[in-house]
Amino acid sequence: MEVLVESLEYRLRGGFVLGPVTMHLRPGEVTALLGPNGAGKTTLMRVLAGLLFPTAGDIRLDGHAAGPHRLRKTVAYTPTEPRFLPRATVEDLFRLRLGGLEKPTGSALAEKLGRPLTTYPARLSRGQRMLVALELTLAGDPPVLLVDEPWSGLDPLAQDEVLERLETQRERAAILVSSHDLFHLPRVAQRFIFLHRGRVHAEGTLGELAAAVGASGENAASVLRDVWKRMLEETP
């Protein structure tokens, strides 16, 4: 599903303003969202997920204007720090979303977690919770997927698992991944959006960004770092 964001704005009570943001998420493509802390990445993701209501602008899904309620129905979202309702087991959460969990999928998940699915997520490690969150987010093949800081605090194997899951899902969905991780992002993303002070500062493929800033970096991470530095210099 194609997501078109036009002149999107969101005003926070503290005075922080997100936007206007215009961006395009394409199916079959992973878009990376980068920016310093406080840039508005999480806010943008929550607006796109329908959890926050924009104060101006449009979000279109396959060309049709989508309000927060349609976004909540359509867009899957994994927050930075996945939190779940107390006294709900992993199995309950899947039942709520899918009506049940097929045995092979359930067994595979239980094996990955090393715990039965009757475990409460609060009793899992952060990495295990992120895994549950990601599996829940991917459940039912969402056409649009937003993942906020998926690698933060995960061990290397769990990080690879996240990469693999995103790569697998890419064929079926438009994906936006927010992260500070300049190592993992280029491995999974085709396009990059730099957000700073609530606005899009730079956008494009790695090659386009490198050309735009005259980046001399020899690898993807250094190109992204150059763009990041340039962004902070231009808009301190």
């Binding site: 997920a49 129905k73 309702l85 829940l136």
Partner: peptide
Amino acid sequence: ANARGGRLDFVVTRGPT
């Protein structure tokens, strides 16, 4: 408290309203 703590994110996105 559920809403403030972000505990409804996984309930209301692609789940019940």
